Simulated assay, not measured.
Amino acid sequence: MPVFRHINVVLTTAWGAVFAVMAVSTWLAVRTPSASDWLNWVVPVVLLIWALKFTERYPESYRSRAVGPA
């Protein structure tokens, strides 16, 4: 059970950080109209793609390190 809990804590933290950075990015886009395309579109899309890939790969990676080879 500790492996399951650890994986979920890490994934929840990662997604929380991504959403927080996206919120700051949107706030900055409002304050900086010249960079709004980057801050409203590029940054959030890159963050979401990273989070999806991390979510896909991290659990198995951590499990293999925590439990060891089968």
Results as ranks from 00 to 15, higher is better:
24 V>M: 15
17 A>R: 11
41 W>M: 12
42 V>I: 15
34 S>W: 08
35 A>S: 09
44 P>A: 09
22 M>C: 13
38 W>V: 13
41 W>I: 14
22 M>P: 02
21 V>G: 00
17 A>F: 13
41 W>T: 14
25 S>H: 05
27 W>Y: 08
30 V>E: 00
25 S>I: 02
34 S>I: 08
20 A>G: 05
25 S>E: 01
26 T>F: 15
33 P>M: 12
28 L>P: 01
41 W>A: 13
43 V>F: 06
27 W>V: 07
22 M>S: 06
25 S>Y: 08
27 W>I: 07
24 V>L: 15
39 L>H: 05
33 P>I: 09
28 L>N: 01
30 V>A: 11
34 S>E: 11
23 A>T: 10
21 V>L: 02
33 P>A: 11
43 V>E: 01
17 A>G: 11
18 V>G: 01
26 T>E: 09
41 W>V: 14
18 V>H: 02
32 T>H: 03
16 G>R: 10
42 V>W: 05
40 N>K: 13
41 W>N: 14
19 F>D: 03
43 V>I: 13
27 W>M: 10
18 V>C: 07
26 T>C: 12
25 S>M: 03
29 A>W: 08
21 V>D: 00
24 V>Q: 10
39 L>Y: 07
30 V>R: 04
32 T>N: 05
21 V>M: 01
34 S>F: 08
36 S>F: 10
33 P>D: 08
19 F>C: 03
28 L>Y: 01
15 W>F: 08
36 S>Q: 14
16 G>F: 08
18 V>R: 03
16 G>W: 06
33 P>T: 08
37 D>F: 14
41 W>G: 13
16 G>D: 05
32 T>L: 11
25 S>G: 12
40 N>R: 13
20 A>K: 04
28 L>W: 02
40 N>G: 01
38 W>L: 14
16 G>H: 04
25 S>Q: 02
36 S>M: 14
33 P>E: 06
27 W>G: 10
19 F>V: 05
31 R>N: 06
22 M>N: 10
26 T>W: 15
36 S>Y: 07
43 V>A: 06
20 A>N: 02
22 M>L: 11
15 W>G: 01
39 L>P: 06
39 L>M: 09
41 W>F: 15
35 A>E: 07
20 A>M: 06
26 T>K: 13
42 V>R: 12
23 A>Y: 06
36 S>N: 13
23 A>E: 03
37 D>Q: 03
35 A>F: 13
